[in-house]
Design a protein around this nucleic acid. Sequence first.
DNA 1: TCTGGGGTCCTAGGACCC
DNA 2: TCTGGGGTCCTAGGACCC
Length: 435
Amino acid sequence: MKRFFRITPFRGATFFSTMLQYEQTAKITMQNSEKKPKSILHIDMDAFFVSVETVINPKLKGKQVIVGGPIEGRGVVTSASYQAREKGVHSAMPMVAAKKLCPNAIFLTGSHHLYSDFSRRIMEIMERYTPAVEQVSIDEAYLDITGCLRLHRTKYPFVIANSIHETIANEIGVPCSIGIATNRVTAKIAANLAKPNGVLEVYPDCESAFLSPLPVRKLPGVGPVAEKEYKKLGIREIGDLLKFDPAVLTRVLGKQAEQCAKRAGGESSKDQAESNFLSQERDTAKSIGKEITYSVDTGDPEILAATLAYLSERVAGRMRKAGLSFRKVTLKLRYADFDTYTRSKTINLPTSDPSVIYRTARALLTSLDKKRQKIRLIGVTVSTLTKPDPQINLFDQAENEDKKRKLLNSIDETRERYGFTSIMSARWLGHSQLR
DNA sequence: TCTGGGGTCCTAGGACCC
DNA sequence: TCTGGGGTCCTAGGACCC
């Protein structure tokens, strides 16, 4: 009898029997360990972008809907309705291929602003239940509800999970799936298995029984490459990982395997760091970048230079908004044959000056662009980010820097109000395809 | 059927210092 | 003439996630 997990479909009868089951396993757990098990939720929106579009336009409900880039512009799928998925459409698939599979689907390019706004409202709902919310992407978050069960007058984590599930559905109109477990990895996997629109709880002490029969590919961090490597060792299921000496796995497959072995046992490094949930300062970005795939490959140096100017401005704008400076600039090129190269350069003193990004990227482009081929993609990323230290500025530089900063800030404000292209650097004026 | 764009983290070699 | 070991920084590439 499978006792260790249950999908709760929000009906009174099953709800009650689930409570009885929980009571039983929880009792056993209490006897086995002194400490109360943690209750971690992983909440993940179902087909998020498509769901938001459906809230805006209810006529889309139940149809094949695909959100992604423009078909002519080499776009890919970012979100597909379950009706489209039935036909084999999935995210990251070229839009052209999706169109072949679903010729009559509704294709949308989507609006990131809209999705961010929905995301913010959804996170606000979660924060009503616990302050320990850690958002990990636009449509998913971890919640630690261990400390607030009593506040919500229940012993049962799934009571809170169900309430969150219903509140998001009622107030926002977007379906989600929730995994409940004593640690993050198991909660995340449970949420995935609960899709769509389900809640799945893995009871305390049942983690490895739940995880063992699942394919290793289900473990977060195991992609196609790692899966292949594991297969060579005869590892197919998560349980197989436990049969190996972690030291052997680490030697053969590196640090990644070490993590996986731990996760297979239902442990994740982040579980220890409680501070992750309640840390005051949201960890600052490690890098900020922007890249563009041309709709037609180009070898025109003027277009390339204009694009670099544009990318540098975009990156610098976001960096200033975050109040950061960089030391490293990375240029990325992808040629027509899809071969991809990066070149980077670290400068001595941190700055947020877009012209430094541009000049550095230009120099890197000169050093890299030797292949006699047209370019498909070009990108600029800044990293080694720091909060600018005012003391670094020498006195005579300070005034200059201050003027520059004021100018750049006013540029940012204007763009905020009237859109990015309201103020354009002369270099990319006239290259309308960048808009 | 022709492969986006935003990221994070890990590896590995070489330079340089002690 | 042959040649240590540890630490840190820089660079390039690649796996993976959403």
